[in-house]
Amino acid sequence: MQPPVISFKRLGQVFETAAGRAVTALDGVSFDIGRHEFVAVLGPSGCGKSTLLRLIAGLIAPTRGSVEIWGMPVTEPRDEIGIVFQRPTLLPWFDVLGNVTFPMRHKYGRVGEAERARARELLALVDLADFADKRIDELSGGMQQRVAIARALLLDPDILLMDEPFSALDALTRDEMSFELLRIWSERPKTVLFITHSIPEAVLLADRIVVMTPRPGRVREILDVPLPRPRSLATLTDPTFHALADHIRGTLFSRPAAA
């Protein structure tokens, strides 16, 4: 196996609440993510999933252990990472194209013709080729999240971090976006860490699923998803899909008495 792109080494994160109480968000989290692997981190709310993402992004520093990218400990935000958040959080004063090119403008102060061309390419990739000049409030929630994905891809990151990106969308749009993401990922292979609390979403998308326990967030189980790619609507009726989903459901809802 190739050396891992991201590795978590006995990662622990303790936060202090406003009342001064220490809360353990993550405890002894260790696993690796390989190149161009799609890993879903699945768990109930309060299991430190988002903390995990912010640790890889270098937005916070771990209390214990370390996160490594290409074998180097993460100490600050790095260029090879793109982030898609739960909410699209686009900028209403820019049109769609301006939002996609925003990372360039923000990081380097200006946007060249090359970036604009690249942004148009990415808009075509996310199926919004004709929407470059549209205002943000003219787009639906799903379309806005596509723009956010294009924005995350602008600087061509190796790693794509997604923090429950479809959880604010309605059920139909959500399914559609899952297949869209798989298509985009097959056209632009990236190492993806996808945070979610939806079991079917994790099974449909990921190569491997990291199931977390809540408070403190620990790795309960790491599962390979043996479903063939490319995945399609047919995947949803595959017996393996259901067996795996049922297994995870069983794991999440069985709370060992001595845990």
Partner: peptide
């Protein structure tokens, strides 16, 4: 999120 985006870009 936008502040985090900004920080992740080290702007």
């Amino acid at each position: 999120e936008l502040i985090e985006l900004s920080r992740s870009l080290r702007a």
